[in-house]
Amino acid sequence: MLSQVFNIVAPLFLIISVGYFYGARVRPEMRITNQLVMDVFMPALIFHVMVQDSFMPSQYVWLVIAGCALMLGSGVVAYLFAKLFGYHARSMMPPAMFSNWANLGLPLYIFALGPVALDGGIMLVVAGNVLCFTVGTYIYSGRFSGLSMLKTPIIAAVILGGLCNSLSLTMPPFLDTPLEMMGQVAIPMMLFSLGVRLTRVSFKDAKIGLIMAAFCPIVGISLAFALAYILPLSDLHRGILILFGALPPAVINYMLSEQYDCEPDQVASMVVIGNLASVVFLPLALILVLLPT
């Protein structure tokens, strides 16, 4: 069991470590690379998955419902926690809700549960992005801007992919092959970029960072087990949901908090310490998922 867990998490953290040490030494400008991942490679991966004959969105309805319930539930728990202990709720809720679905989530599902888990992981990425650019931006900014979500390439890829899927359109090989190749770039590049980003984030406000480093996976895994018990999820989707709940806060939280001037130093601490703490919590989540039932 332990060797299996090690073989799953080691490739993820090795690639992140390469990005971290490269970033610490070279200090590369990753803005353009990150934009390429979010605007080109990730949309290509999502679109390629959604236009495959084997992809049937109806299979993931309960998983998406569970994922949305987990994110929203985590936000509610974070709000109550912040109010109870005197923390800033607007800066605490989004990091509890919006985690590294893509950077860590997709490769984690694949290594732990096999390539068959990719489609479900993609659906959670889609659901997470929809909530992040609607509910998330509302929490950070205090105003709702649904149109901004429609302008993101990932959502455009979801709409186009869903349309092609519903019409049973098949991509010719000369289009499908480059889409697949570009999509394959996304996962290792996101892990590498995450490592580089961890060199840029401050450790200020370490107390709230340490609190959230434990809060996010504990609440997320607890809600995942509760939802898996209530909702009719398959064993595969149950495993994906538990790993989804264990993921640390996403870097997008720091970017949005800075954009809307919502305690960016505190959010930065939650992101960096939470991702470092995932070295402990992700193996624990994997043990829970891989234990025989």
Rank of each mutant, 00 (worst) to 15 (best):
G142A: 10
A82Y: 07
N103C: 06
G121R: 10
G128V: 02
Y60C: 00
F85N: 10
D235S: 11
T137M: 04
A78D: 02
L147T: 15
V280F: 10
V37A: 11
M189N: 01
M182F: 13
I16K: 06
G195A: 10
F13A: 09
S269W: 11
I46N: 04
L179D: 09
Y109N: 00
Y20A: 05
I252P: 00
L179W: 09
L210N: 11
L106G: 00
F85S: 07
G121D: 13
V267H: 00
A89K: 13
M56R: 15
M42S: 11
L210F: 15
L291W: 12
A250K: 09
C132I: 06
I208M: 12
I159E: 05
L70I: 02
Q59M: 15
L286K: 09
P173D: 14
L198C: 01
P28Y: 07
R31V: 08
D176G: 02
P107V: 06
I208H: 04
H48K: 11
F41E: 02
V76P: 01
I139G: 00
S168K: 12
Y60K: 02
P283F: 13
R31S: 14
P172C: 08
Y138V: 00
A69D: 02
F215I: 05
W101L: 14
A112Y: 04
F98N: 03
L241V: 06
L247M: 12
P43R: 09
S58E: 14
L150G: 08
V9E: 02
A268Y: 02
F41P: 00
I46R: 07
K83S: 09
S148F: 08
Q52F: 05
I187A: 11
M93L: 09
S3A: 13
L223M: 06
N275F: 04
L288S: 14
L113D: 05
A117I: 00
Y138T: 07
L256M: 12
F144Y: 12
R143M: 01
R143S: 12
G121V: 09
V272A: 14
R200D: 15
L147Y: 12
I65N: 06
M30T: 15
L286P: 03
N129F: 04
D261W: 00
P153D: 00
F55M: 06
G239V: 04
V9C: 02
V289P: 00
S54D: 15
M190P: 00
F174H: 09
G67H: 05
E258D: 11
M93W: 07
A24T: 10
L108V: 04
D235A: 12
F98T: 03
D176T: 06
G73N: 06
P11L: 03
R25S: 15
L231E: 04
Q52R: 14
G245A: 03
A226R: 07
R197T: 15
G142V: 12
M123G: 03
A89N: 08
H237G: 02
D39C: 11
A117K: 01
A82P: 05
P57C: 01
G183D: 08
L84P: 00
P232I: 13
G105A: 07
L210I: 14
E29A: 13
R200G: 08
M92N: 10
L150F: 14
I221L: 01
Y229M: 09
L256E: 01
A112E: 03
S99G: 12
A69T: 05
E29V: 10
A69Q: 03
